[in-house]
Design a protein around this nucleic acid. Sequence first.
DNA 1: GTCTATAAGTCGATAGAC
DNA 2: GTCTATCGACTTATAGAC
Lengths: 201, 201
Amino acid sequence: MQKNKSRRVEILEKSAILFHKKGYSATSMRDIAKAMNMESASLYNHIKSKQEILQAILLPLAHRYTKGIEEIVNSPLTSIQQLERIIADQVRITIENTDSVSLIPNEWVHLKNKSEKDKSEKDALKEFLQLRNFYEKEFKTVFKKCIKDGYLRKVNVDIAIFSILSTLRWLYSWYSKNRNINSLVLETELINNLIGGLKKT
Amino acid sequence: MQKNKSRRVEILEKSAILFHKKGYSATSMRDIAKAMNMESASLYNHIKSKQEILQAILLPLAHRYTKGIEEIVNSPLTSIQQLERIIADQVRITIENTDSVSLIPNEWVHLKNKSEKDKSEKDALKEFLQLRNFYEKEFKTVFKKCIKDGYLRKVNVDIAIFSILSTLRWLYSWYSKNRNINSLVLETELINNLIGGLKKT
DNA sequence: GTCTATAAGTCGATAGAC
DNA sequence: GTCTATCGACTTATAGAC
């Protein structure tokens, strides 16, 4: 049971790397098996399907983002402190799960909804999109509050948020080529870059 | 000949949309044929292979980026004006080729190098990466000159450039959901957001 | 220039021996 | 829990009729 579980986690980790490198569709079960030094048939002793691998990577991660922003929003911090903590949390998630995070921008499109044949499948695509919408809504609320509270200038909210989230979405790519950077330096530098220019002076 | 050419362009346009929506690997020739209202075999009267479609979309676009930055860099503008023009040019390219641009961040990995069997194939992957490296090198040179000339503060150059390019890379995604925005507004707003915070006061 | 038919290969997944 | 063998569906691409 313990050994079985760790084998499964190994598969998820190798799969995340391969999905990142070639994309979900271009990665075959044979590719994953090769990375695990086993035959593709053996994979099915640990996972149910290729689709289940993708879900097992993306859904817990999406929940991690949501949990993070929820805790920050419900804290007694000021709006601008919350915004900074949200950015810092994204940096931390990226550093701790770089390969999985790399699948967030694009590979989620291959998540499938519950199929007709197998009712035990989860409505993974729906769940993922709900979590993402919730996150973006919370982010926007905090950002608007920062303007209302007088911490930030009255910029075009949609463009500014898009710009911040774009950088954070591509952080995994930059970080995988610069893994030796100190994570606290990265956090503070990014917070300065992303909202420093928006602050009232 | 004229008709043949426009048919080919139609295929490239439909393919770009499909590659964007599902990815290159998950898009089949049957999918493209369906979007063209023809059988998949008929596609081969206009294009040589699926790989050639990808190359015909990505390579001219990569050359367009390079041509743009080269012209700006060789102009008599000041360094900060050049930086602003480079950002504006990326906005313009994205607005004019939204579907093709959407393939730049990820789908280029499916470009293939010259194969052993068909020596007439181009070394597409190599060419694409050379153009990208050239672009990023030129961008960095201009950015550093802006600091040296006293227009921008002495920030961490790599992190700042990564942040700017991330936003521009994801612009296609934002723009495809907000196509009614005035392009000049978008240009000026983005220039302000991306380098406004870096300027010396 | 479009079609039908099909070649030749790869895909995800299963059956059953050990 | 891993293997070999294999199924049936799907893939890109070609041949040849019209």
